[in-house]
Simulated assay, not measured.
Amino acid sequence: MARPSRKSASTRPDIHTQITNQIIEAIEQGAGDWQMPWHRTGEGLNRPLNADTGNAYRGINVLSLWVAAEVRGFSTGLWGTYRQWQAKGAQVRKGEKASLVIFYKEYDAEDVDTETGETTDGKRRFARASYVFNADQVDGYERPEPPVAINPVEAIDQADAFIRSTGAKISHGGDRAYYRPSSDSIQMPEPSRFLGTPTSSATECYYSTLLHELTHWTGHAKRCDRQFGERFGDEAYAMEELVAELGAAFLCADLGIALTPRPDHAAYIDHWLKVLKADNRAIFTAAAQAAKAGEFLEKLQSVTKAA
């Protein structure tokens, strides 16, 4: 039987701890040369999809399934529950281990955040676990033809149009990339100063860096108004960097751009581990805020097209 074992509520860690520990373990297993899952392939990385509905997973579930696929060497981003695979005429192989995703049981409440379960009155919906298996773990499933990869030129054109539609103030010059809150502007080196890597072209390096800074840009008070100081104190800056890292990963996956680690990426790993170990909901907060940043930027695309 391939179903996950059911432990009693008193012995099973809560859902937030299970997912947080999974991500911590994956990072620590990589020791000093850890690369986040979204840096692992030169073809870019798509959001994981539910094999039954075809819908893309969101927020923390994207990160959780990316990590699971990286650690266990899965070659596909298709996932489904035991019953969903059965309904498609497929069978999860005996002994296969499920991966954990999270959802929130719905209650009648206004303005509910679907990633954190928070409402405007401070209440929370009940977090529920769901166990899914990758298509690599099942027999009897005929995979559909993989989607045609986005032409690199088209991907860059698409990314350029996406960024331009935000209306963000972007200046070029110098040798550093950063967002400056005081002027509400992004500073980027000239595109010609970026170098290619084994997984990304020089142009992709430029755009993935710009999408990182664009995620920072969404944190301004007149946009998503991200404030981590009260909760995370001295680690608030590391939290914002994690949001920008995840935000850029989500955007690159959607736009077909291979994400390149920032030069200072490794320096933040220890900070992130410290935050994750101290707060089992920190990664949920970061993923939810990254998702909100992406949704905000998507809405700007709609506004531009409507105009």
Rank of each mutant, 00 (worst) to 15 (best):
L259T: 14
A258Y: 13
A221N: 08
E241K: 07
Y237P: 00
A266W: 06
E235V: 00
C224W: 06
C252W: 05
A253N: 11
H220F: 15
P263Y: 02
M239Q: 10
A236N: 02
L255N: 10
G233E: 09
R223L: 09
E245Q: 11
T218D: 06
Y268M: 07
D264K: 01
H212Q: 13
A238C: 00
D254L: 11
H265F: 15
L255A: 07
Y237R: 07
F250Y: 14
A244D: 06
I269G: 01
F232S: 11
E245Y: 11
R226Y: 05
I257Q: 14
A249Q: 13
E235C: 00
G233D: 08
D254R: 15
A248W: 00
A258H: 13
L251H: 13
A221I: 07
C252R: 06
G229Y: 04
E240N: 10
P261N: 11
T215G: 03
A249R: 12
W272R: 02
E240C: 00
R262L: 02
T218I: 10
G233S: 07
D225N: 14
P261H: 09
H271C: 10
A267P: 00
R231T: 13
A266N: 13
E213H: 07
A258I: 14
E245M: 12
T218A: 08
R231S: 10
E245S: 06
C224K: 14
E213P: 01
R262V: 03
G256T: 03
Y237D: 02
H265C: 10
E241T: 05
A221P: 00
E213A: 03
F250K: 05
F250C: 02
M239L: 13
A266T: 12
T215K: 09
A249I: 08
H265T: 10
A267G: 05
